Simulated assay, not measured.
Amino acid sequence: MAVEGTPVELVLDTGDDDREYAEEQLQYLLAELSHLDLASIERTPSLLPAPPGTRSSGGLELGALVIGLGGSGALLPVLVGLVQDWLNRRRSGTIRIKIGDDELEVTASSDEMRQHALEEFLRRHGE
């Protein structure tokens, strides 16, 4: 996997075990992400064992992406805003945003503490 620029991992949790629904939601998210000027978007290899009855263990983990922001990382606030808006429109689910060892969990509900955590995360990874 070749990620260009600052790698940002996004992991979507739809809140249920329906793999078909999770994949559908991930495709909707990917469609919106494709409108941003991102350096790259990759699906991450699965770290989970294959489902019972299947042969392959090299499948893709549903809901996991690695995004390359490009050189400056100036797109991070735009990316986080898109994720937050996307979740709020669905009124469910969680997306973990991870850069290195730093992680932020964004949920559909927004309150003052979550907004503060978001601002702090962006500050740590700003210019």
Results as ranks from 00 to 15, higher is better:
A2Q: 15
V3T: 11
G5W: 04
T6P: 00
P7L: 04
V8K: 10
L10F: 07
L10G: 00
D13P: 05
T14L: 13
G15L: 05
D18S: 05
D18C: 08
E20S: 12
Q25F: 04
L26I: 00
L26V: 06
Q27N: 10
Y28R: 13
Y28Q: 12
L29I: 10
L33Y: 08
S34T: 15
H35D: 12
L36Q: 09
A39E: 02
A39R: 00
A39F: 08
S40Q: 02
S40Y: 02
I41T: 15
T44G: 05
T44M: 13
L47W: 13
P49L: 06
P49N: 03
P52V: 03
G53R: 06
G53L: 13
S56E: 11
S56L: 03
E61M: 13
E61R: 12
A64F: 02
A64N: 08
L69H: 09
G70E: 09
G70K: 04
G70C: 07
S72F: 05
S72Q: 12
P77K: 10
L79F: 09
N88M: 13
N88F: 02
R89M: 08
R90A: 11
R91H: 11
S92E: 10
R96Q: 13
R96G: 00
R96L: 15
I97D: 05
I99L: 07
D102R: 05
E103D: 00
E103I: 10
E105C: 02
E105L: 15
T107E: 09
A108C: 08
D111N: 14
D111G: 12
R114F: 00
Q115N: 14
Q115A: 14
L118S: 11
E119F: 08
L122S: 04
R123Y: 12
R123K: 15
G126L: 01
